[in-house]
Computed example of a mutant assay.
Amino acid sequence: MDELRETAKPVDETELAIEGALRPTSLAEFVGQQKVRGQLQLLLDAARIQQRPADHILLSGPPGLGKTTLAMIVAHESNRPLRLSSGPAIQHAGDLAALLSSLTPGEVLFIDEVHRMARAAEEMLYLAMEDFRIDIMVGKGAGATSIPLDLAPFTLVGATTRSGLLPNPLRDRFGFTAHLEYYEPEELERVLKRSAAMLGVSVPAEPRAEIARRSRGTPRIANRLLRRVRDYLVVHGPSSGSGAAEADAETVDAALSLYDVDSIGLDRLDRAVLDMLVRRFRGGPVGLGTLAVAVGEEPETIESVVEPYLVRIGFMGRTPRGRIATPEAYAHLGVPRVESALRFDDL
């Protein structure tokens, strides 16, 4: 058993190093989001020339498009340390005060899901972002006093998947706001080409394009599917165990089908929602809660994980009366179209 542990240890460490290396470390290496990259480059260059911390940055957009990676790049290209936190972890003003007071001059603070911070912490952050100062209340009642505490200048990089939930006073204090868009298949192919080289797996152009088509416009999903293809090659490839085999289109299809990812990137839950909507509810309209109960998931999961992609590719419509399936959904499932209570033309 000890021998097995010794053998596995360097493999695990190598794998972790490879996973970390998949994240680009500079804007030049970052694929896609060309407009945002240009804007960030100008922001960072100006701050470097003027020898000051960069303005606060807000990155918004769906999950998996590179917000965390861009925050790491901001710190790396600014030659500053990076502190990572998240909105759900900051539930009291004291949590934020402790975090801010420990920052070193010029440090980059990344807060993921910044819209989920507690209201008291948000209000403290207003002053910190603007004047690099916070007021700490000592005592209670009539005897309470406010003690000002100066902070080291820092750069806040906030990330959010729901920018509409950010209060205006907080949003206005960011010097630069960027919205990340879904990737085109050609951009995902470039991401996959770089990742495949780092993972040590050969993926020619045709199977690489197939993985990109199933990645829902999201680099995180593309890299995840690539790793599953790599695993399939390790187990079932002609040189099983070496991971050096080449992936062809048939291998990609077999690997992704094993994990219930179909030809356009729908997974088990996506198809379950569509199938229930089309077959059980005759195309809708049906309420979100009813649909969630029917497939055995939470409404929040359906709304935040499943719906965005189905709506984006035109398979589902959201109406005041509920969710409905479009003709494209019927065609993809191979189900004859039926008349629903709401005409598709009403979308």
Rank of each mutant, 00 (worst) to 15 (best):
E15F: 08
A17S: 11
E19T: 00
P24I: 07
P24F: 10
S26F: 12
G32R: 02
L59Q: 07
P63H: 05
K67N: 14
M72Y: 14
V74I: 08
A75E: 02
R80Q: 09
A89L: 13
Q91V: 10
G94Q: 01
L96K: 02
T104M: 11
V108R: 04
V114W: 08
R116E: 15
R116N: 14
M117Y: 12
A118K: 01
R119T: 12
A121F: 03
M124F: 13
M124A: 14
D135M: 02
V138A: 15
G139E: 13
G143K: 03
G143T: 07
S146A: 14
I147L: 13
P148D: 13
T160P: 04
L165S: 14
D172A: 04
F174S: 11
Y182E: 09
L192N: 02
L192K: 06
K193I: 01
K193N: 06
L199R: 13
V201M: 03
S202N: 12
V203E: 02
P204L: 11
P207D: 04
E210G: 05
T218K: 07
L226P: 08
R227Y: 07
D231L: 03
V235W: 07
S239L: 06
S240M: 12
S240R: 09
G241H: 05
G243S: 06
A245D: 13
A249V: 10
D253N: 14
L256H: 06
L258M: 12
V261G: 08
V261N: 05
I264P: 07
I264M: 13
G265I: 00
A272M: 04
L274W: 01
L277I: 08
V293R: 02
V295D: 11
G296Q: 09
E298I: 00
T301A: 07
E303G: 05
V305K: 04
V306G: 03
E307N: 06
P308M: 09
Y309T: 07
V311G: 03
M316D: 10
G317M: 02
P320F: 05
P320K: 01
P320Q: 06
E328G: 12
A331G: 03
A331T: 09
L333G: 04
F344A: 04
D346T: 14
D346P: 09
L347W: 13
